[in-house]
Amino acid sequence: MVNERPVIAERKRSTAIVPIRIPMEESKHPNDPRQSDVDEWGRSERTRAMARALYEPLYSKWFRAEWEGLERIPAEGGALLVANHAGAIPSDAPVIMHGIEKELERPVYGLADYFFRTLPVVGTLWARTGGVSARPLNAYRLLKEQNQLALVFPEGTKGPSKLFTDRYQLRRFGRGGFVEIAMRAGVPVVPIAVVGSEEAMPVILRLPTLAKALGIPYFPITANLLTMGPLGLVLPFPAKIKLRVLEPIHFDVPADQDRYSKSRVMEEAENIRTLLQESIYDMLRDRRSVWFG
């Protein structure tokens, strides 16, 4: 039983299209009756590897994702990745998670609204593939106690629900909660500017009444839906996605404080927002074509 374990891990490594370092728990019980590898966040590396295998063609062939400054993402230790969020079903989240896991071989946990947990099937799949509900306690545990990478979109649903006419205009960054969490956990914030996700699934129209009736955050009518019919519900346009990782931002404040100065938090949040907005403009200036980059 004990000797079997590394062998299983080895096999897992070779069948996965994208290899990833599987965090082995040190205090394994010798006769562990566990049968799956679902961790305390509901994430399963096996399901994640499967999802990566399925997503790989979309990532490298469809979006032809291109990174800049990937080396700025810390190779170890916790860090809070912060990005802009766009497209009715945002492609930025899976692209960032996939890209970092593929290139850096580090798992990324995607923090998102708890709303996902309430959805049958989707919620479970979301958790198995690395989704975690964005509670401050969860983020703290991931970043500080488990030294993981966590990805947040401070715009929340305001990002993906915005209309195509507002593309690449960053929304308000919530209440700066992400800065406070990074301060408390004592980890850097790494901003990532994404270009291309806006055009992958542009929102033409929103139906707020229908969204309210269905109890979902927003109900978009997308260009994909209009041109491709039902297929457009899930299939994004093949826009070229480019990602730029900015310099990590370290806050020189003591970790584990109960509260941080609100003005400092808002200032830092606003600063990160400006940085992201400016790099997005910069990337758009260099972009000749939506489809070819």
Binding site: E40, W41, G42, Y114, F115, R117, T118, V132, S133, R135, P136, L137, N138, R141
Partner: peptide, 12 residues
């Protein structure tokens, strides 16, 4: 509930 953190501490 869906709003819960993944882990409850004694004072959560």
């Amino acid at each position: 509930s869906a709003r819960d953190p993944s882990t409850f501490h004694e004072d959560t």
